[in-house]
Nucleic acid binder design. Structure first.
Lengths: 153, 153
DNA sequence: TAGTGTCAGTTGACACATCAACTCGAAGGC
DNA sequence: GCCTTCGAGTTGATGTGTCAACTGACACTA
């Protein structure tokens, strides 16, 4: 394998970061799943809806907020509505609302403390305050690059 | 939504970092997919096999190297062997080798430059050398925490 | 030698993500 | 009025990831 174009240091930075993300994501997801039966995707949708007035958001707006493709959101809402976590409501002639149900709110409420605790334990506490700020800066920089590179993202 | 247990700064660090890594991952994957028809998973397997003597690695060892569950590796190798990128060979009575094919090598060789270029463009170049080192340290710290928390990972 | 445990590998079910193609109503121009 | 375009939403196909249950060979031992 030749790695022209990346120094060892750069390659290591990439592989370590990528691997860390994979593991961290899996671990957070696992905790959510076993403690509440929610996936990361479920949690994201419920959190966004619960913060919105009336617990309802237009589906395309929800997709924009979560940065998801519309069909991803559609499939996700399908699965969640089968489980009673959300419902859909017509909005005018062509629009749809996604609405969090009572059961959705209850499930989220039950899931939040453990989730926050896990994020704190695995992500926040191992790092110094300085590292956390550095990381925020780094993430923001790369996000800017990504959005500049393909503005619609 | 109440976020007991996380300060605004910590929450922002978490959300920004998570979002950045998700987007970056998707973008790298997209580039690989459109330029070579490979997924990140395909690429990982091909890269590992191509670096091994004889282009072959025991399946369980491959899983260990990539940090994957055995069934994930199994399904992945199934899909890849259907496409002619790898084959399997018996190893003794109970073992299996995964072996990269000529076609797998060719596909990988063709994919590497664009992939490396994309990693450089989206991940390495936006950051200063100092930031890159900081990030490597941060990722390593979190990885250590994860592995200490559940040693088999 | 039967019983037990272990480990690599396999399988099937299900959830998640992405892509392309499609519907349908609205908006704008002619 | 008619046509085109567009955007929100829907659908199906395919690939990806996880879990639990199973197989089959080996090792250990009572």
């Amino acid at each position: 394998m030749t790695w022209q174009g990346l120094t060892d240091r750069e390659l290591r930075a990439w592989r370590t970061s990528f691997h860390m993300l994979e593991l961290l994501r899996a671990r957070i997801e696992q905790q959510l799943q076993t403690s509440s039966g929610l996936s990361n995707a479920d949690y994201t949708v419920l959190a966004l809806l619960s913060e919105a007035p009336g617990g309802r958001i237009r589906v395309y707006e929800l997709g924009r907020l979560a940065n998801w493709e519309k069909s991803r959101m559609h499939h996700q809402l399908n699965r969640m509505s089968k489980r009673g976590l959300v419902t859909r409501e017509r909005c005018g002639s062509r629009g749809m609302y996604a609405v969090i149900t009572t059961e959705g709110r209850a499930t989220l409420k039950q899931a939040v403390p453990g989730h926050v605790q896990e994020v704190r334990r695995l992500f926040v506490e191992p790092l110094t305050a300085e590292q956390l700020d550095q990381l925020t800066g780094i993430a923001a920089t790369i996000l800017d690059t990504l959005k500049a590179d393909r503005p619609e993202a």
